[in-house]
């Protein structure tokens, strides 16, 4: 069980697709104008990612190496089309606000990247947990960026007003394109700082352990 949990930890913290591997920048920057959009995009991608990882892992011994990329794309495109139709049927509002970025999940580099780097080399169950971890990491990152941009840019989070207009004047730039870059860069910097501190701690712990021996 430990290695499954490790996959999820790896996706959310250690190799967070947005803050550490810096993949999938197009949806990250484009749709995170509100926290709701961030959650919607993140969960949609997570669903596609889990299913793709599982199917590709199941088919990994049958897809010839030379045509693996077209093979992956066929699998991914199938699931994205399914998801898009489901969203259109059951969550039309979310579908409208994400717009073009739903079909663009087909070329999302996180999904391609996990298929190429993980799913085509590992078992079905492990790949599923990898998809869950990576997907949750992506969702978390998008929600954070979306929440910060929405709070600073409109004074609300998930549509609920937090900073009232009577004393807070929204800094509109944060819901425009430059705001996405500003918030993303700050969060990446914070994540790097945390990782550096963790590494330092691990080294010190290793040193202390070596001394104790």
């Amino acid at each position: 069980m430990g290695k499954y949990i490790e996959r999820i930890y790896n996706g959310i913290i250690k190799e967070n697709p947005t803050f550490v591997i810096v993949l999938g920048m197009c949806p990250t920057l484009a749709v995170t104008t509100s926290a709701t959009n961030g959650v919607g995009m993140g969960l949609t991608t997570t669903a596609v990612l889990i299913l793709c990882n599982m199917l590709i892992a199941a088919l990994r011994n049958y897809i010839p190496d030379k045509v693996r990329i077209p093979g992956f794309i066929v699998v991914i495109a199938t699931f994205v089309t399914l998801t898009e139709l489901l969203l259109k049927a059951f969550l039309p509002a979310l579908n409208d606000s994400l717009g073009l970025y739903i079909p663009l999940i087909v070329v999302n580099c996180i999904i391609m990247g996990r298929a190429e780097a993980y799913a085509c080399k590992n078992g079905v169950l492990l790949s599923m947990f990898d998809g869950i971890g990576m997907g949750l990491g992506f969702t978390m990152a998008l929600t954070m960026i979306g929440a910060i941009r929405e709070l600073l840019g409109t004074g609300a989070i998930f549509g609920f007003t937090i900073l009232s207009e009577s004393f807070y004047e929204p800094i509109t730039i944060f819901i425009l394109a430059p705001g996405a870059f500003l918030v993303l860069s700050m969060l990446v910097a914070a994540q790097n700082k945390i990782n550096l501190i963790n590494e330092k701690k691990a080294k010190e712990a290793a040193k202390a352990a070596a001394k104790a021996e």
Binding site: T172, I173, F174
Partner: peptide, 10 residues
């Protein structure tokens, strides 16, 4: 420019 984009009317 940051202020101009953010608080255009002001």
């Amino acid at each position: 420019c940051f202020l101009l984009i953010s608080f255009t009317s002001r």
